[in-house]
Every structure is written in structure tokens, then in C-alpha cells.
Amino acid sequence: MESMMPAPLDEEPDQAQSALLELQSENQALRARLDSLLELAHRNQNIMARHQSFDLKIIGANSFRELITNIFSALAVTSELDVVSLVLFDKLGDLQQMLSDLKIDLNEFPHLIFLRHEVELSQPETALRKPQLGLYQSLAYSSYFSSFNKKPASIAIIPMRRQGRLIGCLNLGSFKADRFQPNMATDFIERLGSIIAICLENVINNERLTYIGLTDPLTNVSNRRYVEQRMLEEIARARRQRYSIACMYLDIDFFKQINDRYGHQGGDDVLKEVAKRIKDELRLSDTLGRFGGEEFVVVLVNTNLHDAIQVAERIRKSIAGNEFVLSESGTCQATISIGLTTIDENSNYDDASSIARDLVLRADRALYQAKNGGRNQVRCF
């Protein structure tokens, strides 16, 4: 009968060694998992910190330009996006006109898209009730990313609503096809859209208040206070950049006779149309304001005397050459007299307030010469 022999003693260390190696391997796997989780936690913490910083930036924005700049620059970095665009609905075009009057050049923001109505997005209104995530499709989403030559692979379209009204869409894009997927949770981007919508409403309201305070309510051009403020700014800028500026003083000829003949409504119609015709001959960088009554002042930046005379003549001809349609009493004719003066880089060295007063005074004297010379003409001083 075969006796039961104990296992060799050297097998026990082998089993122990195997268990130890298995434990070490398990421990290394756990350590790798912990390191991965720790790295993810750090990444999420950094992402959260970046988004908090972004939120503070846009909430603290005091102007339309500052807010839009932060949306296009900071958001792309914060969220690691390849493209960001913004659609705003401006049904009457009054928002764009106001921003233009406030000297905000919308050409600075090629990815800011103004549309009159939702139908221009080539999508049913029901599609804009909640965020849309997924692959980019040209037929559905080209309007959102029309300003980009290279289109994204995946997109997130975030409707922005205020008080139940759709004011626009924030549009995010990535060149990675798996960045935005239809089954992703949308809580975070909906919150982002809500914050930006509130901030937009806030800065637009602030700009409207500024616009109202600096705008003549009848003609919708700048008022005297704004022109005087801009003139000081332009004198300082012209001094730094060493260029000339011109100042025009304009006065509608025989305006009292227009009021007497066609009534105050007729006079108001002429004032509004004169302001429009003057503005049509100016650049965005120029400033037009009503100084009171039938008088207007224009500041032309980076303009010498020769070019200023050409602008003044265009204005004069546009007013004298076309009848004015009145809202209550047919049509009438009107002309304008213009006084003009300039200051160049060699004489722009005195106190800015003194220079501004002198420019207006010299332009007014030139206007007086135009009036005495027979009206409907441009004179220089």
C-alpha cells in the first residue's frame, strides 16, 4: 500500500510567490485605475475652473463688444471648440442700426450672424425648442456656420430664449465627429445658453440706454452731447496717430419758411430726411449730430481739406437735388449751407477741449459766410 507523502517543501514558496505576484498585479491595476480617476478629477476640476472663469467674464461684460469678444475667444478655449458662431434675430434691423450708430463695427465679428426671421435657418421652428447635437449636415446646419470655410464634423445648436421668445442660437462645432452625439446629456449646454442669453439681453439693454441718452429722438442721429464727446476722443486719437480731422457745420436754408408753409410736421419730415441724406454720405467712423433746431455738425476722421470738401459737396447736392416727400402735404424743396474747417497733425497740440471749441467756432464762421454768400453752398475757414 502506497503511503501518503507530503508535498515538497519548495512548492509552498512557489504558491506564495504566485499569490504575491497576483496581488502586486492587482495592486498595480488598482493604482493605475486610481491614477486615471485622479487625472480625470484634475481635468474635470480644471474644466470647471475654466468655465467658472468664463462665466465671470461674460457676466461682468459691460458692453456688447466686450461680451461678443469673450464669447468668440474665451468660449472656444474654455470648451476646446474648433468653431463658435452666434445667430441673433433682428427682425426690423434696429439692433444693427443702433450698434452702428454707437460706432460698433460689426465687421469685427464675422461669426456673428444677424437674421430677420427663424425661417432663414432652413429648419422648422419646432427644431429650435431644444438643443440639437450630432453630425454636421450641410442641408440642415449650413446657415449656422456660413462664416466658416471649414465646416465642423459634429455640432451643438443651443437655442437662446428670453421670456419665451427665441432671440438667437449659440452654435458650437468640433472637427471631431464624436465630440457631440445625439444621446449626450444637454443640461450643461442648456445652462450655458441661458447664461449667454441673459448677458446678451443685459448688454443690449445697456447699449439702448446709452443710445437713447446720446441720440436726438426726432432724427435718430447723435445729439450735441455725444458729438462733443466724440470730438474730444477723435482729437486725441488724431494726435496720437498723426492725421487730420475735419468739422462741418450744416444749416437748412430758410427752414422757418418750410415750417410756416408746411407746418411743424412738414418741418420734422424735412429734418429727418436731411439727417438721413447726410448720414448716407458718411463712413461708419464719422460722427453726425444734431446741434439743435435745423443745425447739424459732422466730424470726419482722417480727412484732409480736399476730401472734406468733396464730402460736403456730395451732401449739399443730395439735399438740393431731390424733393422731400412730406407725410401730410405732398413734397417740397430744401437746400443746405455748409461751413467747413480742418485741423492737421502739425496744429493738433493744444488742449483737446480748446481745439474742439475752436473747430466748431471756425466751422460756424464758415457757415455764416455760406449764408451771406447766397446759401446752398460750401465755404471753408
Rank of each mutant, 00 (worst) to 15 (best):
V87Y: 12
D10W: 15
D178T: 05
H306C: 07
P124E: 00
N27I: 09
I309G: 00
S3Y: 05
L20C: 11
L192V: 04
A236E: 13
H111S: 14
V227L: 15
A370L: 11
V77K: 13
S318M: 03
L121T: 15
D35T: 07
D351C: 01
F180S: 12
R362P: 02
F254T: 04
S354A: 11
R316C: 08
P152L: 09
A363V: 02
P6I: 03
D344I: 00
F381T: 06
L86Q: 06
M231G: 12
F255P: 11
Y144V: 10
L106E: 06
C169D: 08
Y249V: 02
R224D: 08
L340I: 02
L305A: 07
H306G: 08
E22P: 05
E345I: 01
E12R: 15
Q377A: 12
S194I: 05
L67H: 06
L288P: 11
L9N: 14
R239A: 13
V298F: 08
D307Y: 09
D178F: 00
L40G: 00
Q181T: 07
L56V: 14
E273M: 14
Q163R: 05
A16R: 14
N346I: 11
N44T: 11
R129G: 01
L192N: 04
N107S: 10
I198R: 04
G292E: 13
L34A: 15
R208S: 11
N107T: 05
A236W: 00
S337V: 09
N376F: 07
